[in-house]
């Protein structure tokens, strides 16, 4: 159920704001009918999470349309005007560069970038925040950025990296397809980090936007000969700290 200030939310009251045919409605409906308690301090806070989730979906679609390539960490590349490439294949924000401009550059000059799906997921979440908060606040929130894997995540994205078991999945979640029998020569296919775009719709950097069955088929093509176990989708979800981001936005004064 959804609770606002401890009181159950009547979903009908939001129908004019979020039409049933819109992308937010399935999220509201799933939260409302869930056995989990989705609690918010105010209706505005719920609106903010929905806005963030839609921004995440948009950022994922835009990255898919960008010219950024897929590359294993050993062959990753980035625009040296904004980022330093580390010895392990990650990107670190250069000194004196505005974080907001550096993230935006990935979308504007995608052809200068190539990386694995875990880094791409982080880029998507940074871009989603950038699209909903002022640039100056974004720069203050993320003065240092390291884009690599889930070992190097900002505290605001800690739960994106950890992923928790969940019975509910919504647009804007990060999820993971596991490929246990992957070919040892292609460890990059050991699994897929994806963004949920909507019901049974996933975006993975380098593969594009597909249904779950297609993602599994692609992973299964990269198994070792004689493999017995199919790839599968984990029942875990990774989500940014929407509450904290909301609070930072509320207390922001330019």
């Amino acid at each position: 159920m959804i609770q606002i200030s401890g009181k159950p939310l009547d979903l009908q009251t939001l129908e004019s704001e979020y039409p049933r045919s819109g992308p937010e409605w399935p999220i509201l409906e799933a939260m409302s009918s869930s056995r989990e308690n989705y609690g918010y301090a105010s209706l505005d806070q719920l609106r903010f999470e929905l806005k963030m989730r839609m921004a995440t979906v948009k950022a994922a679609r835009e990255l898919d349309q960008s010219d950024m390539d897929f590359a294993i960490f050993r062959k990753s590349r980035c625009n040296p005007a904004y980022w330093s490439r580390t010895d392990n294949g990650g990107f670190v924000l250069k000194n004196g560069v505005r974080p907001s401009e550096a993230i935006r550059d990935i979308y504007l000059n995608g052809s200068q970038y190539a990386t694995e799906c875990a880094t791409a997921m982080l880029i998507v979440f940074y871009k989603a925040v950038l699209d909903v908060v002022p640039d100056a606040l974004f720069d203050r929130m993320f003065p240092e950025i390291e884009l690599m894997d889930w070992r190097h995540v900002d505290p605001l994205f800690r739960n994106v990296g950890l992923m928790r078991s969940s019975g509910d999945f919504f647009a804007g979640d990060r999820r993971y397809f596991m490929n246990p029998d992957v070919n040892p020569e292609t460890p990059e296919w050991q699994g897929e980090n994806v963004i949920v775009l909507g019901p049974d719709s996933y975006n993975r950097h380098g593969i594009g936007i597909h249904k779950g069955a297609t993602m599994i088929r692609e992973l299964n093509k990269n198994r070792v000969g004689g493999a017995e176990q199919s790839a599968y989708l984990l029942d875990r979800a990774g989500r940014p700290d929407y509450t904290k981001i909301w609070e930072m936005l509320q207390t922001y004064h330019p």
């Binding site: 889930w150 070992r151 950890l162 460890p187 050991q190 699994g191 980090n193 984990l234």
Partner: peptide, 10 residues
């Protein structure tokens, strides 16, 4: 387990 740094920060 089948966990790894490819999917999780911890």
């Amino acid at each position: 387990t089948q966990d790894g740094f490819h999917q999780s920060s911890d």
